[in-house]
Design a protein around this nucleic acid. Structure first.
Lengths: 352, 352
DNA sequence: ATTAGCAGTCATAGGGGTAGAGTGCCAGAA
DNA sequence: TTCTGGCACTCTACCCCTATGACTGCTAAT
């Protein structure tokens, strides 16, 4: 049995051409076509030998005996990691994204627009995970007593986003007590991270409990409740253009599309998946099974984190068929993430 | 040429059986099958004569020469208006809807749950239009100055729903001026209709302008802006289970489904359509073209308004294929609307 | 008014045959 | 050793044809 050759230059080049052609045509690539396309002046027979090697190594596979070959997940992975040559983005597209993002009022609208733009530019689905309230800046807080000992907390974050929350108050407070607590928080913490605010308060109270007035301890308790991130996950991933994905499902077998659709709208799963991309900088790609979700098996996810003040706060990207035009999509997602970050930074205003 | 006979008892009965069978089987009904099913001891040949009459009258039609007949829109209309015998709803379903609706915290969650329940119970898509903020009760208002002369308006409506809105303030106000304005509004108008509040203010100011202090006139101006319904239509129709509709599209021709999907998510169109149902009491049905929207041509919409304090404030319903089981769907939509109304009334609390 | 019978229409499913694309392998050329 | 032409083989996709069966409308008889 002959030893498998390492992947030489020629084999890599052929793999690259094969993947490119498969992405473009959507059909298994045969030796004849590959010989023509590769520009190496080799006969189909020679190509066949190389293809056979590539198949042994697990980079390509044939759906049946008399069909051409198509890339496996490892094939796509190798292609993306070391063979891909990205294409520069059309200037007009850049301009449109920047303009559309620039004209949005609230940061919520801005992120929604980003999702829509991604979907329109790619004819696939756009995904944007909202920043966790936790990681945005504390700007202003206000307490409003409701009936039955409940309190309405109004929290304004750095991007002028307004969050409402109703909490059960530990005891009855007078309006002026609440006002005092709010004033204290607004002066002391404006501009800080919300998570930081929570942790600082927690820390200080436990340190100096005995020296604090009951009022301050109470205020701290309310604030803890108010800033508690629990139960704060409504519509945290904005999906646009999901219907576009229908076109990539083979006709007559829509089950894959259906379960993809259901998974996409399963907030928890998607948040978890997107969160895995927030740590690493640059563009992240999940190909087929790599995501670990059954429903995403035949789809790829291209994502990038977007940042406010150099801190990654959310993730955006695109989902589409495994055979998507990565050389176009990757720079597009990268750019969009940067423009969204820039637009958000621009929106960040000084505290009230 | 023989005169067309009026629709006698027998013809009506046959139409009813035909529609029922077509809804159940989804395929054109032939004379043989109809003769068997009708229980009238008539031969297929006789049935054929009657069917021919029904076709002349425009109630049924045949897709091609050698196929059976299926109902036209008029056929469905006649069936629904005068032939239909509704089925009582399964007790367990009633209980589940009531329980699920009862366990929701906010009225937003409640309406979302209603949409989901409708979709699950019917395997079609559920639709719920949110009450216009305009038509809900005024409970409490608060003004909060932001930077650059903008004001944050916090409006709490009768169902303890919280609405935020940022307005451009006509001039700079001090915190106490704003407080005074809010206090005035809260005392004077608590419990009234929001629309009423707006109109009353508008009216009073124009009546007695010269006798009012500048402060009051300013407060009125702010309030006008704050309660202005313009630009208040984000996600006003909650759609759930839209993917279910895919199953009813013939395989291989998904274009109708695609354009339906897009129309459904076209907020403006849907709001307008749902609003047409808010006036009349009871269940309203649009069959096929009756809705006037191209994309809804082969679909039916069954709706009913839901009420708070006997005033219709929103519409809910179901969208599905024209051949849906109306005898089950109609009472279901009716019931759900009543239960949603009851749950909302139960949630309505006295002003702060 | 109803029915049986009959001729005619049309969609659908299945079988058979073929074209075409592609492969693996081998022997010979470079 | 590397490459190539040739050949046998495989498998899909497509087309054509036919058989089948579910209908209809019409007519003549009951």
């Amino acid at each position: 049995m002959p030893k498998l050759p390492p992947l030489n230059e020629r084999a890599q080049h052929l793999l690259k051409v094969l993947v490119e052609r498969y992405i473009h045509e959507g059909q298994p690539v045969g030796s004849r076509a590959l010989a023509r396309e590769a520009g190496l002046n080799l006969s189909p027979a020679t190509i066949r030998n190389v293809m056979s090697d590539l198949e042994q190594l697990g980079f390509i596979t044939a759906p049946h005996t008399s069909a051409g070959r198509m890339p496996t997940v490892s094939g796509y992975r190798l292609f993306i990691d070391s063979l891909l040559t990205v294409k520069p983005i059309n200037d007009q597209v850049i301009r449109q994204i920047r303009d559309d993002l620039g004209h949005q009022e609230s940061s919520g609208d801005l992120l929604e627009t980003a999702s829509r733009l991604l979907s329109e530019a790619t004819h696939m689905a756009g995904l944007v995970s909202l920043p966790k309230r936790e990681s945005s800046a504390f700007n202003h807080i206000e307490f409003l007593p409701l009936s039955e000992g409940r309190l309405l907390v109004i929290l304004i974050s750095g991007q002028q986003e307004i969050h409402n929350k109703i909490i059960q108050s530990p005891r009855d407070y007078t309006a002026s007590e609440l006002q005092a607590a709010a004033n204290f928080l607004n002066h002391r913490f404006a501009g800080k991270d919300i998570r930081q605010v929570r942790e600082t308060i927690l820390h200080e109270v436990s340190e100096t409990r005995e020296r604090l007035s009951q009022e301050l301890i109470d205020a701290a308790a309310i604030t803890q409740l108010a800033l508690d991130p629990q139960g704060e996950r409504r519509d945290s991933v904005l999906i646009r253009g999901e219907i576009n994905l229908m076109d990539f499902s083979e006709i007559g077998n829509l089950e894959p599309f259906r379960s993809l659709f259901e998974t996409l709208h399963q907030q928890e799963d998607m948040i978890q998946l997107m969160d895995r991309c927030i740590e690493s900088p640059g563009v992240q790609i999940f190909i087929g099974e790599e995501s670990g979700h059954k429903a995403l098996d035949h789809w790829s996810l291209v994502t990038s984190a977007y940042s406010i003040n150099d801190q990654a706060v959310g993730v955006l990207g695109v989902i589409g068929p495994t055979r998507m035009a990565y050389e176009r999509i990757i720079p597009l997602v990268d750019l969009t993430a940067k423009l969204v970050g820039a637009a958000l930074n621009h929106k960040t205003l000084p505290p009230l």
